[in-house]
């Protein structure tokens, strides 16, 4: 459980860097509840850029339908965790 928790934290940290890079904003801090409403410019196109960066950083692959189901960052982290655990 502790290991799982830590890896989720690590994912969070790396995902925060991905978000900061894509939105060109070093002030971004993520939480489980962070959603498209909270970050200016987070639309379908930005989601593609986020996915490409996340794919590069975590070495996983996403499908369009998986990404469009995500409601917030918490769910994004869960999908990455799930993919890494496979």
């Amino acid at each position: 459980m502790a290991l799982r928790q830590r890896s989720r934290d690590e994912i969070y940290k790396e995902l925060t860097d991905v978000f900061r890079d894509v939105f060109d904003d070093n002030q971004i801090d993520l939480s489980d509840e962070t959603s498209a409403k909270d970050i200016a410019g987070w639309d379908s196109l930005a989601t593609i850029n986020l996915a490409i960066e996340a794919e590069r950083v975590f070495g996983v692959k996403f499908l369009t339908t998986e990404l469009s189901r995500l409601k917030n960052v918490g769910e994004f982290v869960s999908v990455i965790t799930q993919k890494l655990g496979r």
């Binding site: 593609i48 996915a51 692959k61 996403f62 499908l63 369009t64 469009s68």
Partner: peptide
């Protein structure tokens, strides 16, 4: 349409 496609982003786009 886009959100329902089970493909990678470039194919869906």
């Amino acid at each position: 349409v886009y959100s329902a496609l089970p493909w990678r982003w470039y194919a869906s786009l």
